[in-house]
Design a protein around this nucleic acid. Structure first.
Length: 491
RNA sequence: CGGGAUGUAGCGUAGUCCGGUCAUCGCGCCUGGUUUGGGACCAGGAGGUCGCAAGUUCGAAUCUUGCCAUCCCGACCA
């Protein structure tokens, strides 16, 4: 297998595809649009899951599991929700196969038609709110704070590994509250959980904001989001948190009796992040040599590679390496010692660079004599020969430094890719020449938003939270505007 | 789902126009040996229903039709 990746400068999307395959993250499967997530890719996802799950629990949520299948009739109960998802649903119509009478193979048994078709969940609001109806009678039953880790299916026409697949893995939180402001606080809290996760773990700076009516989740009153900037100047929605109002409670007739004895519909939120985060991680940090992983999400944080002549030398290096491995592990650092004799050191160096391992330690004959070792960091490619004394502490600090450096680099990238436009011509020229985020005045109408999208391909990614109020004129219509919104071409 | 391109060994490919020892080459893989401070070298070896299915023909990787998959461009979307 050729290990060479397409260069980012030559073809960014080809680079991304190559990287996902060659770093062993995922591959296409026999089913169109559905991916196989390979062990290495999945272990990164598991790191993400672990960090998020911990935060969900800390904020009072519990995990549960709801069915993969949703009765079709549930879907029709919330009008905008159906409309939003109808075009991309997989539908189960039969429950049995049989042998064809002409011996041509196995066919669907038409006698086994389902009375009511089942939809493979594209999201679980409907089945969950149907279920919550049975769980909620009184304000004492509230709030309900539930999350589920699951797969969902959206029949996408054009798919890309991790970024958009027909089936993907995600978590979806679904909460029920007695008061609107409590639900809004929950929505905002989870947005902050996502933003912190993106910045502290993924080392990706994000813009928090709310979606326009046009970009809002089907069935939500308000959609909050975090938006990230990729190296090619396109934005990527990394997470969403929805205030659903009483829409689903009304659709599924979920009422509770308050302290005062009055009945009211329950207030809802839902929030999710998906395996798409893998795409964000790749496109934010990686380079032409391969994946670059932030230490906090790296399945292997440190790899140790021996360089030796003869078995005797290998044995000496083994002793040092195993001692070092233990010392690092005692500090909670994940280490791999790769003393395979079937590959040479140079090959291993290239391989672990491709896979984004943050720190590499090489130990060779020279080091045996000098009591040193070579330590190399993936993010900057710097190499240094250092004394093996105090190496565990040094590596521990280095991992923190790498994590911070990746964030700062990504932040600088985001800043460089963020522009302001004061006229439509300027707006278009920025999009054509530089890409990235563009702050511009907008008159607040869906009509204008759609026109701009049609003419430039750029969409309003969000109206940033805590946005600076500023008098201005809409770049498209010239109408009065009170603030700039964030435009970008997006994934 | 519409338009375009592509599909030959695990990967990348030659051959396809002009049907007939054409299944080519490189990487990878296996065995043995020598090696090991940035993707090793030598020798030997294995591996292919030419995406799938029909059709045309004495004969199809090559021509025709249908299907499937991937990539690019649109519409749609986390």
């Amino acid at each position: 297998m050729s290990k060479d990746l397409t260069k980012r400068s030559e073809n960014y999307s080809q680079w991304y595809n190559d990287l996902v395959l060659k770093a062993d993250l995922a591959e296409n499967s026999a089913v169109r649009g559905c991916m196989v997530i390979k062990p290495y890719g999945y272990s990164i996802w598991e790191m993400m899951q672990a960090a998020l799950d911990k935060r969900f629990k800390e904020t009072g949520h519990s995990n549960a599991y709801f069915p993969l299948f949703i009765p079709k009739s549930f879907f029709t109960k919330e009008a905008s929700h159906v409309q939003g998802f109808a075009k991309e649903c997989a539908v189960v119509t039969h429950y049995r196969l049989k042998n064809a009478e002409d011996g041509s193979g196995i066919i669907v048994d038409e006698d086994a038609k389902l009375e009511e078709e089942l939809i493979v969940r594209p999201t679980s609001e409907t089945i969950i709110w149907h279920t919550y109806r049975g769980w909620i009678q009184s304000y004492r039953d509230l709030p309900i704070l539930v999350n589920q880790w699951a797969n969902v299916v959206r029949w996408e026409m054009r798919t890309r590994l991790f970024l958009r697949t027909a089936e993907f893995l995600w978590q979806e939180g679904h909460t029920a509250h007695a008061k609107a402001d409590e639900a809004i606080a929950e929505t905002e809290q989870m947005l902050n959980v996502y933003a912190e996760f993106a910045e502290k773990y993924m080392a990706i700076p994000v813009i928090k904001g709310i979606k326009t009516a046009n970009e809002r989740f089907a069935g939500a009153i308000e959609t909050y989001c975090i938006e990230a900037m990729m190296q090619d100047g396109k934005a990527l929605q990394a997470g969403t948190s929805h205030f659903l109002g009483q829409n689903f409670a009304k659709a599924f007739d979920v009422k509770f009796t308050g302290k005062d004895g009055a009945q009211d519909y329950v207030w809802a939120t839902s929030w999710g992040v998906s395996t798409r985060l893998m795409g964000a991680l790749i496109m934010t940090h990686s380079d032409d040599q391969g994946l670059v992983l932030p230490p906090k999400l790296a399945p292997i944080q440190v790899v140790i590679v021996p360089i030796y002549k003869g078995e005797e030398q290998l044995n000496q290096i083994n002793d040092i390496a195993f001692t070092l491995k233990t010392a690092l592990q005692n500090k909670g650092i994940s280490v791999k010692y790769d003393n395979r004799d079937t590959q040479r050191p140079g090959f291993k160096f290239a391989e672990y660079e491709l896979k984004g391992v943050p720190v590499r330690i090489a130990i060779g004959g020279r080091d045996l004599e000098n009591g040193t070792l070579e330590i190399a960091r993936r993010d900057t490619k710097e190499k240094e020969t250092v004394s093996k004394e105090g190496i565990a502490e040094r590596v521990e600090k280095l991992l923190i430094e790498i994590q911070e450096n990746l964030y700062q680099k990504a932040l600088a990238l985001q800043n460089n890719m963020t522009h302001s436009a004061n006229s439509y011509d300027e707006f278009k020229s920025i999009l054509e020449t530089k890409g990235g985020f563009v702050y511009a005045h907008w008159d607040g109408t869906t009509e204008t938003e759609l026109k701009i999208k049609e003419e430039t391909k750029a969409t309003i990614r969000c109206i940033p939270l805590n946005n600076k109020k500023e008098e201005g004129k809409c770049i498209y219509s010239g109408k009065i505007s009170t603030q700039r919104v964030l435009f970008a071409k997006s994934y």
